[in-house]
């Protein structure tokens, strides 16, 4: 019984995270300006990381944790690079 509750709540959580990614993707495509697009790309990598963590909870495998860690590290670097590009027009000065 509790196994079914856990399975269905993880599936519902994955659906909600995918819906959140769809909202951010709409803002990335239709965003009025470049900073909106960068903001929503930044939020999308957090959503992808959470989605991978819920897949890890669903399968009980510890491999997904490392994928989530790599996404959180590389997403931060890419967002910083994009913000620097918006500020100066170049990434490395």
């Amino acid at each position: 019984m509790t196994a079914a509750i856990l399975l269905w709540s993880v599936i519902a959580a994955q659906a909600m995270l995918v819906a959140a990614m769809a909202c951010y993707a709409y803002r990335v495509i239709r965003g009025p300006r470049a900073q909106d697009r960068v903001l929503c790309l930044d939020a999308m990598y957090v959503c992808a990381m959470l989605l991978i963590l819920t897949i890890g909870i669903r399968t009980g495998s510890a491999i997904y944790f490392e994928a989530a860690l790599i996404i959180s590290v590389l997403g931060f670097v890419s967002s910083i690079a994009l913000a620097k590009f918006l500020m100066r027009g170049e990434v490395i000065e």
């Binding site: 709540s9 519902a12 909600m16 995270l17 959140a20 939020a43």
Partner: peptide, 17 residues
């Protein structure tokens, strides 16, 4: 906890819209 976290993330995304 999984449902709480996903719901909060979805609320944030709707706020962005």
């Amino acid at each position: 906890l999984v449902l709480l976290g996903a719901a909060l993330t979805l609320v944030g995304a709707i706020g962005t819209l």
